[in-house]
Design a protein around this nucleic acid. Structure first.
Lengths: 251, 251
DNA sequence: CGCCCACTTGATTAATATCAAATACTGTGG
DNA sequence: CCACAGTATTTGATATTAATCAAGTGGGCG
């Protein structure tokens, strides 16, 4: 829950009461094994999932088995906040690594957002950021080369992990296989492997399947044509809490 | 405005009063010339745009000029319903063909959704469908071949146009250039041209830059691995208006 | 130890981009 | 009505990117 609050506070500032409400939002976390589905396409979802620990993904598959990862969740991310409006999931959500999730019922979400409009606005913000990310992915898929695409993904992970204090030095715990990267970027595993070697050779990153190290954020961002604007960090503070000072941009 | 109501009624059934409220929502339409920006990246949007006529697009560009179309709007589509939460646009919206838009202020939207929860829900539905479409595009970009991707796009256009009565026979007015298709699919113009020839040769479609004809919807859908589920048509009726009969699926 | 994965490497092929030129189409002015 | 300019489409040839196929290597673990 901590991570959620930390993340939302990049958008707004909460009162203690609001923070309290957020903290008491959900039940105990459930642990999901790696590569297990959390929600499957076609399901009628009953609650919202808050990722407490680990990496989860959205994915979608074609009938012949080709599979595309559409996005990922880190600690503090909420899956499918407004999914109650739709009848059936049009995609699946799965744990990539071991994941701890807290399930929050629709009722609780509604109670809380009714009582605390600022929380509602903050939650909206998270879904808008998620959409923005998905647009950036579309740009990546359509226009960035394989190397740029992977580099860009690493930049994004770096930023998103940092928001919730998952970065130390320039290192992020990132227990992914190269096949996962392949499914995220729409590339073949072999090609991902070669691109990774190339990025390593260029001295931009280090990645061993467990830890991603960004050797030079500036260089990597330049290479990837990465512009963090699409993550909309820190930008709501001024508008929502009008009296609060605007803090410096993270990073 | 008609098209909007027609579209929303694929999700729910309105009372006359609600329909009235929707109809009186906005001012006179403004006409935007083809290839003109409607909102530009970095802008702080002041209102919501309802497309009355024509095709508009979302797009995003890299600093070196590469450009990706992220989605398109047909009559009845609303751009950026909840954009007030974010400070700045992270992408642009432009007219592809001549477009008529109605601008709706945030205030009006809020008044209406406060008074008519069913309208609020219906508007939410449209944004969820839009997100779903963007996920499907990601799947297309990552996993579908060039030909499948274009075929899939045509299927989608066919369905979305049909919702708002823009299809006659199996023909849709679609005044696009091949470069537009290229930017939508992340392909080069030359390759789009060849794929189009191929689809024509296979007897699946006809397209002359003005009118798209789907010669055999079944064959085209099979070829494109198209499953209309992601468009979430007709699926909310049962849940929102509990007394209303569930109508047959369109198509 | 030996097996199962994941990763790596090399060779080849397929998909798609790029470059360059030719053809068609659209609207305009004479 | 024609000539022309400008743009869009088409075609051909070639280059590049990335996929596929096939065969290693290497590490973790029962």
């Amino acid at each position: 829950m901590d991570a959620l609050i930390r993340k939302l506070e990049h958008f707004t500032q909460f009162t203690d009461e609001e923070r309290q409400a957020l903290a008491s939002l959900s039940d105990l976390p459930v642990v999901v094994g790696p590569r297990q589905d959390i929600i499957r396409e076609g399901d009628n979802p009953t609650g919202v999932n808050l990722i407490v620990e680990g990496y989860a993904i959205r994915y979608k598959a074609l009938p012949d088995g080709r599979r595309q990862i559409l996005g990922y969740f880190v600690s503090g991310d909420i899956c499918d906040l407004r999914v109650f409006v739709l009848k059936r999931m049009d995609h699946s959500i799965a744990a990539l690594t071991p994941v701890a999730v807290r399930v929050i019922s629709e009722k609780r979400i509604l109670e809380m957002t009714d009582r605390y409009p600022r929380i509602m606005r903050a939650l909206w913000w998270t879904t808008l950021v998620e959409e923005s990310i998905s647009r950036e992915w579309l740009l990546s898929m359509g226009q960035r080369t394989a190397a740029e695409r992977i580099a860009h993904l690493f930049c994004e992970i770096y930023y998103r992990a940092r928001i919730v204090d998952l970065v130390e030095g320039h290192r992020v715990a990132l227990p992914l296989r190269q096949t996962d990267l392949a499914e995220m970027t729409g590339l073949s595993v072999v090609h991902v492997n070669r691109v990774l070697q190339d990025l390593r050779k260029q001295g931009l990153i280090t990645f061993d399947g467990q830890v991603l190290t960004i050797l030079s954020p500036e260089k990597l961002e330049a290479f990837a044509l990465f512009d963090p604007l699409y993550l909309h960090m820190d930008e709501g503070k001024g508008t929502v809490t009008r009296t609060a000072p605007v803090t410096a941009r993270a990073g």
